[in-house]
Design a protein around this nucleic acid. Structure first.
Lengths: 228, 228
DNA sequence: TGACTATGACTGACTAGTCAGTCATAAATA
DNA sequence: TATTTATGACTGACTAGTCAGTCATAGTCA
């Protein structure tokens, strides 16, 4: 909801800044930097706790302790628990979307493009905190319409559009034969989503070679791989 | 909602038929029957509440109210909130597994078998409470290892085995060309799972024709459909 | 059959504990 | 020193689980 105006000071970037390399454990020179670092620490801690316990069961005391701040400090950055959760999702997802939008331009075989995307997804999402975050969104989405809306607009909708474009390109170039696939880009994504969920729930029962599964899935769509 | 069981009238029925045909939906004559009905009412109410709010945010008072019993009554049937959740999942899932095991024997094209399964899944799971339950398990699984274990053993593991058998049959008969598919039956299931999640989270943003999507997916695996 | 007793299912007020959010005070900074 | 930022003890609302008491029903007996 209320998007606290970002402290204004952050923009300063203070001239001879000691270059606080992201969330480095550096001494932290000025106020603006410290404030930003604290916020980042709170976001990180909140993400861990929410992923581990879900929204309702997470205690703000635990987040504060993990972030190394007092509980009151959280309320200097976030209006309340709900806004914190919502802003947390935005904060974590936005950079991911930005990176996905920076995919290489469509040169070379479509299969290579999709494979690059899959490898990227493997490295950046599956088996990372971001993967857990996706599961968390699935878990809490129905109770946080604003989160579900945001996720749909920023990730699902864009992803679908991008995938559809790739599929149509593949069809136009004769790499993909199933014409109707463009109507359901979900089919292309589905195994990747399943991999995310599998790792959270069943990895200990039956480890899943996600990379190999995605490869087989691409074989299914593009036909057997040419090399190796 | 409130299923006020018209206590007075029920008592009258006293036809000395002690042979209570299990948990029949009959007029409810004796104590055992009533007890079973109450338990069922609690399970139903709990399922609604857990699906709507998740485990932690669900109040036992609300479950009791919805079931039309006092809170104390819940504790005559379940040890505590956690056991109730665990037993609830078992109670709801077991009959589904039983029905899945009763699939028709492998005669006719494999595609027809898989299609029958998909249609069954559409009708029985997607867009039903059972679909919501699947999402609930994904949501709460990490915090309820016993639930995740149970679900893996009773549903995922069996489902994978069955699917693998079908895939191998399809490969043997030349209906399926992607040999490696048998190594990842998840790929066959993935779009169905996505449909379940989609309906819970994004149906209002973008309705999904799950039936058509599953059909396209089968086309992808078996090759274009022969008729219409 | 009718009356009387025993049983245990059911109730809901209550307890003990939890936790989101507040605010008077302290620390850090300019 | 004045101002901004951080702290954590505190409060009040909320809820899982309890248990002494109630009462419909089953059982027993005349």
């Amino acid at each position: 909801m209320t998007r606290k105006p970002a402290k204004a000071a952050i923009a300063q970037a203070t001239s001879r800044a000691p270059e606080a390399d992201e969330k480095a454990a550096a001494p932290a020179s000025n106020r603006a930097t410290r404030t930003a670092e604290r916020r980042a620490a709170i976001v990180d801690a909140a993400m861990e706790e929410f992923i581990a316990r879900g929204f309702a069961a997470t205690r703000l005391d635990d987040i504060a302790k993990r972030a190394g701040v007092a509980k009151g400090t959280i309320y200097l950055h976030f209006k309340d628990k709900e806004s914190m959760f919502e802003e947390l999702v935005r904060t974590v997802i936005v950079p991911v979307v930005a990176r996905l939008n920076a995919l290489p331009p469509p040169t070379g075989p479509v299969r290579d493009l999709v494979e690059a995307f899959a490898n990227n997804f493997l490295k950046e999402v599956i088996n990372t905190r971001r993967g857990d975050l996706v599961r968390l969104i699935v878990a809490e989405g129905p109770r946080f319409p604003s989160v579900a809306d945001f996720y749909y607009r920023e990730v699902v909708s864009r992803g679908m559009t991008g995938m559809r474009a790739l599929i149509e390109l593949g069809i136009a170039r004769g790499e993909i034969h199933e014409k109707n696939l463009a109507r359901f880009p979900q089919i292309l994504i589905a195994p990747a989503m399943i991999a995310v969920i599998w790792q959270s729930l069943f990895a200990q029962h039956a480890p899943l070679d996600a990379q190999e599964m995605l490869r087989v899935h691409l074989d299914l769509i593009f036909g057997e791989r040419r090399t190796t």
